[in-house]
Simulated assay, not measured.
Amino acid sequence: MSSLLQVDDLVVTYKSFGKEPFTAVKGVSLTVSPGEVVGLVGESGCGKSTIARTVCGLESPSEGSIDFQGQSVKHLGMRKRADDQLRMQMVFQDPFNSLNPRRTVGSQIADSVALAKRLGGTSPMSATDWLEKVELSADDATAFPHRFSGGQRQRIAIARALAAEPTLLIADEPISALDASLQAQIADLMSRLVRDSGAGMLFISHDLAVVRLIADRIMVMKAGKIVEEGPTEQVWNHPQHEYTQTLLASIPLPDGLGRLPGLAPTP
C-alpha cells in the first residue's frame, strides 16, 4: 500500500540574528498510510509540533523531503494552500483560536463541505449532519464558538476538518487542553471518524496511554529525533529505548495493578 504521507530525513533549523541556530527536528523520517493512525509521542519541546507545522507547509524544512499523495509539500509562506494540499487537514491544540469567533459554527463547517464538493467529494452530509456525527446537536449550527465548552469546540474543529473529506488528518496535541475525562473520548472519536472515512491520521501527543488506545503504530521522539518506533503493542509491551521506558513508567496506574509490561521491577 502506498503511503499518503512520506517524510524523509526532515531537518528543521531556526536561525535568529545574534543567536546560535537551533535545530528542532533532526533527520526524522515517517510514513502514514490510508486507514492508518500513527501516534507521535514525546515531551514538550521535543519537536513534535514543528513536524506537524512543517508537514502542513506552515514551516520551511532546512533539509529532507515531504511528499503528500506523491506530491512535494511546499512551504506556504503568505500564499494560499494549493488544491493538492487541501486534502490534508489539521486539528490543533486550541480549538478556540482555530475557529472564527465572528461566524457561527455551522457556517464554518459548511465551508468545509463546500470545499469537499469543489475537490470532487461525494459525501451527502451537511454541516448539521457533521455536528451530529461528533455528538453535538443540529441546533448548535446557529451558535458562535464562545457558547461552547473546550471539549465541544474541539468536536466542532474535528467536524470542520473531516467535513472537507481529507485523505490525511494532522492532529497536533488535540486533546491536551481538555479535561482528563474527555481526552480518551475525543481521541477515540477522532480515530473512529478517520477510519470510517478511510483517511490516515498523524496523531501528536505527549500522552502515551491515550495514543496506545487509538494508534496502529507509535513513534517516540526525544530532543528532535525518533528514538523508537513500531507497532503499538510492541512499543507498549516491549519498550527498547530508555526514554520510552521512562514515559511508560510515568503513567499512573490504579493501586494493585503493578508496573506496566516490559519494565524492570522497581528496585
Rank of each mutant, 00 (worst) to 15 (best):
92 F>V: 06
92 F>L: 11
92 F>Q: 05
93 Q>V: 01
93 Q>I: 03
93 Q>W: 05
93 Q>M: 10
93 Q>H: 07
94 D>H: 10
94 D>T: 05
94 D>L: 10
94 D>K: 08
94 D>W: 12
97 N>K: 09
97 N>R: 09
98 S>V: 08
98 S>M: 04
99 L>D: 04
99 L>W: 04
100 N>Y: 11
100 N>S: 13
100 N>C: 10
101 P>S: 07
101 P>F: 03
101 P>G: 06
101 P>M: 07
102 R>F: 07
102 R>I: 09
102 R>H: 08
103 R>H: 09
103 R>F: 08
105 V>I: 15
105 V>A: 13
106 G>H: 08
107 S>R: 15
107 S>L: 13
107 S>C: 06
107 S>P: 04
107 S>Y: 07
108 Q>H: 08
108 Q>G: 07
108 Q>A: 13
109 I>Y: 03
109 I>F: 04
109 I>M: 10
110 A>H: 06
110 A>C: 04
110 A>Y: 03
110 A>D: 15
110 A>K: 07
111 D>T: 10
111 D>M: 13
112 S>R: 07
112 S>N: 06
112 S>W: 03
114 A>E: 11
115 L>R: 03
116 A>L: 01
117 K>T: 02
117 K>V: 02
118 R>Y: 00
119 L>M: 03
120 G>K: 02
120 G>E: 05
121 G>Q: 03
121 G>E: 02
121 G>R: 00
123 S>R: 00
123 S>D: 04
123 S>L: 00
123 S>E: 01
124 P>H: 02
124 P>R: 01
124 P>A: 00
124 P>T: 00
125 M>S: 05
125 M>Y: 11
125 M>P: 02
125 M>E: 03
125 M>V: 02
126 S>T: 14
126 S>W: 00
129 D>F: 10
129 D>I: 10
130 W>K: 04
131 L>R: 14
131 L>A: 12
131 L>Y: 13
132 E>L: 08
132 E>G: 14
132 E>P: 09
133 K>D: 07
135 E>S: 15
135 E>V: 13
136 L>W: 10
136 L>E: 08
137 S>I: 05
138 A>R: 14
138 A>W: 08
139 D>C: 06
139 D>K: 14
139 D>F: 07
140 D>P: 06
141 A>W: 10
141 A>K: 10
141 A>F: 13
